[in-house]
Design a protein around this nucleic acid. Structure first.
Lengths: 144, 144
DNA sequence: TTCCTTGCAAAGGCTTTGCACACCG
DNA sequence: CGGTGTGCAAAGCCTTTGCAAGGAA
C-alpha cells in the first residue's frame, strides 16, 4: 500500500498524471506476491471497475518499466511479466512442464557474474534471470 | 555435412519422409556456426531454390525440435532460434544493447545446477541458457 | 484551459492452421 | 498408389498504434 504511493509519487514527480487506471494497475502489481502479465493485471482490474482496457494496461506497465519503476521479465514463450521493485532480485525457476515459477536466492549467481565479467567482459544482468527446467512435482509424476 | 545425414537418417527411421525442403533446412542449421531463427533459415533456403515457404520452415524446425533432433532456444523478445545438437551445450550471453550473442562455457553453471537441485529440488535445464546483459563494446560506448 | 491519457478499433509482427495438390516411399 | 508433406492464404495470438473524446492539473 505504502509502496503504491511511492510509485505514484515518483510518477507525479516525473511529470506524469495520476489517473484511476494507473492507480489500479500499480496497486495490482504492488499487492501481488508473484509477477503478473499484462493479461493478469487486466483481469485483476476488472474486479474493481468496468472502465478499463488492455491497451492501457500495456501502456502503463511499459511506462513504469521505462521509467525504472517496475521490473519487466521475459519468462520465455512470449510470457512477459511485471513486478514492483520492492520485489527484490531473485532467480526464476520456470517449470517447463506445469509452468510454475519458483523463486530462488540470487546469491547463487554471484560467482557466475564475476566469471562472466572477467572471462567475457560481459556485464550480466542477473537481477531477474529465468532458468528453465522441471520442478520436483512434475518429475515425480513423470511428466517432465 | 555428415551431420546432415545423421539427422536425415534419424528422421527416416522415425518414419518421416525426406523431402528436398527438409534436406535444405537441415543443411542450413547444420552448416551454420550460430543459431538461426526461422526467418534466417528461410532466407538461406531462398538462395538455393524458389520452391520454399516460411510455413514449411516453421513446421520442419518444430518437427526437428519435437523429435529431439535440434535445439530450440528462446532468446527473449520473441527471438526463437534453432541449432543442431552437434552444437554443444553452452551459455548464451545476449547483449541487450546490440543484440549480439556471445557463447560462454557451460561449466560455469555446474555449481549452480547442483545448488538448485539440492535447495529447490529443481532439475534445471542449463544446456542452452540465455543470460542478458551488456557486452564490452556497448559498455565502452556508453550505450548500455 | 491545456494537453496528457484513455478507449476503441484497427494494424502489426510472428507463428500456426485448413485445405487441396504434390510427391515420397 | 496411399498417405505424408507442401504451398498458399487466412486465421490467431499478443502487443502496439492512430485518433477522437475524456479528464488531470
Amino acid at each position: 500500500m505504502t509502496h503504491c504511493h511511492t510509485i505514484l509519487g515518483q510518477l507525479r514527480e516525473k511529470g506524469y498524471r495520476i489517473t484511476p487506471q494507473r492507480e489500479l494497475i500499480i496497486q495490482a502489481i504492488a499487492h501481488s506476491e508473484a509477477h503478473m502479465s499484462a493479461e493478469e493485471v487486466f483481469t485483476e482490474l476488472q474486479k474493481h471497475t468496468q472502465a478499463t482496457n488492455l491497451a492501457t494496461v500495456y501502456r502503463t506497465l511499459d511506462l513504469l518499466w521505462e521509467e525504472g519503476l517496475a521490473r519487466r521479465n521475459n519468462l520465455g514463450e512470449g510470457r512477459i511479466v511485471y513486478a514492483t521493485l520492492k520485489h527484490g532480485p531473485h532467480i526464476h525457476l520456470v517449470c517447463r512442464c506445469c509452468n510454475a515459477v519458483i523463486e530462488a536466492d540470487p546469491h547463487l549467481l554471484v560467482g557466475l557474474k564475476s566469471e562472466l565479467a572477467t572471462r567475457h567482459s560481459f556485464s550480466a544482468d542477473l537481477q531477474h534471470i529465468s532458468i528453465f527446467g522441471v520442478c520436483q512435482q512434475c518429475r515425480s509424476q513423470n511428466k517432465g
